[in-house]
């Protein structure tokens, strides 16, 4: 059972009270993009065994989307942060580095 802390309303929510939104920090490609870019945006996924960044929605609380940093191999949660950002904040990256030295995820490390 996964418990995440919503960074907006501050509530600790059980996974049944949240909606999982899949991989975070996807770059959207639209009209004018190449087929490869659009394919990558729609279907290409890191799907890592280890450190992962995801979108979640505080569905039964404030209703806002937020991001979570998690380990898919152990279900450990490194932290959550607001969605209005293109990359994880330094504090989250430091929290991950403390437990998973040398981690990388797409362009982040």
């Amino acid at each position: 059972m996964l418990i995440l802390n919503c960074p907006y309303c501050g509530c600790y929510k059980d996974e049944t009270e949240l909606s999982a939104g899949g991989e975070a920090h996807l770059k959207r490609f639209g009209p004018g993009a190449s087929d490869a870019e659009f394919e990558g945006y729609l279907f290409g996924r890191v799907n890592p065994k280890g450190v992962h960044f995801e979108r979640w929605r505080c569905a039964s609380g404030c209703g806002k989307w937020f991001h979570a940093a998690r380990c898919t191999a152990t279900l450990e949660v490194f932290g959550t942060y607001k969605a209005q950002t293109l990359k994880p904040p330094q504090a989250i990256k430091d929290a991950i580095s403390a437990k998973r030295p040398g981690w990388t995820w797409r362009d982040f490390s």
């Binding site: 990558g40 279907f43 290409g44 996924r45 890191v46 799907n47 890592p48 065994k49 898919t72």
Partner: peptide, 18 residues
């Protein structure tokens, strides 16, 4: 389930979620 992990070793990404 580990298809993405092994594909990553070969240098490509898959349209898969585990």
């Amino acid at each position: 389930g580990h298809a993405s992990v092994v594909a990553n070793m070969a240098g490509f990404q898959l349209p898969i979620e585990s």
